[in-house]
Simulated assay, not measured.
Amino acid sequence: MAARKVLIYLAEPHIGELERILARHCRRFWREAVPGGLEKYSCIVQQRYTERLLNNLDASFGADPEFHAHVEMLDAVLPPVTEDAASELPLDTDLKPPTALERFFSRDRLSTDEIYEDIDESLHITPSYLLMVTLSALIAGLGMRSGQTAVVIGAMIIAPLLGPTMGLALAATVGNGQLGLRAAGTLAIGCVFAVLAGVALGLLVQIDPLVPELRNRTIVQPSDVALALACGAAGVLAFTRGASLSLVGVMIAVALVPPLAAIGIYLGAGYTLAASGALFLFAVNLVCVNVAGIAMFLIQGLPPKNWRMTGGILTVWAVILILLTSMMVGRIFLGFGSWDRVLANLSG
Rank of each mutant, 00 (worst) to 15 (best):
R4K: 11
L7K: 13
Y9I: 06
R20Y: 03
R28P: 00
G37V: 12
S42L: 01
I44V: 14
Q47M: 13
N55M: 12
N55W: 10
A59I: 00
S60P: 04
D64K: 01
D64R: 05
H70L: 14
L78F: 14
E88R: 15
L89D: 02
D92N: 14
T93A: 15
L101A: 13
E102C: 10
R103S: 12
F104M: 14
D113F: 09
I119G: 05
I125F: 10
L130I: 15
L131F: 15
M132L: 15
M132N: 15
A137C: 11
G141P: 03
L142G: 12
G147H: 05
T149W: 11
A150P: 07
V152L: 12
I157S: 10
M166K: 08
T173A: 07
L181F: 15
V195E: 02
L210D: 07
L214S: 09
A228M: 13
A230M: 11
A233E: 00
A233H: 04
T240G: 11
A261R: 02
I263Q: 03
S276P: 04
L279I: 06
A283F: 14
V284S: 00
V287K: 06
F297T: 00
F297A: 02
Q300L: 11
L302H: 13
P304I: 05
K305C: 04
W307G: 05
R308D: 11
T310F: 04
G311V: 12
W317Y: 03
I320G: 13
T325S: 15
M328E: 02
I332Y: 10
A344L: 14
N345T: 10
